[in-house]
């Protein structure tokens, strides 16, 4: 599956496209597919200043919702692994078994 992600323009927070808007939690993210629709959606959201530096990432469906394939995106979704007090979602498995 493909997820749309980027950063909030004003805060810089990592955000995920939920189908209706942008969420801080990857668990809310929806599959946007890989076609032109995702690119058009990203262009529209960027123009509307609702996302900054957006892009599409690969993900897999996990027990708690979508989970990005690449570790960098999992850390973006989870928060810094060395500061659990600042975690966004501490249930995301950073290192895959």
């Amino acid at each position: 599956m493909k997820l749309l992600t980027g950063n909030d323009l004003a805060s810089g927070d990592s955000i995920w496209w939920s189908g209706r808007g942008w969420s801080r939690h990857v668990a809310d993210a929806v599959d946007v597919g890989a076609g032109a629709d995702a690119a058009a959606l990203l262009a529209a959201e960027t123009a509307a200043l609702r996302v900054n530096s957006g892009y599409v990432v690969d993900a897999e469906q996990g027990p708690d919702g979508p989970c990005p394939t690449h570790i960098k995106e999992r850390i973006r979704a989870a928060g810094p692994t060395v500061r659990p007090d600042l975690a966004i979602d501490s249930t995301i498995p950073i290192v895959k078994a």
């Binding site: 950063n7 805060s11 810089g12 927070d13 990592s14 900054n52 530096s53 960098k72 850390i75 973006r76 928060g79 810094p80 966004i88």
Partner: peptide, 17 residues
């Protein structure tokens, strides 16, 4: 904007600026 913010030491990293 990116080259302007970088000239002022402001990067966009994984979680925030």
């Amino acid at each position: 904007f990116k080259p302007l913010r970088l000239m002022n030491g402001l990067y966009l990293q994984l979680h925030a600026y």
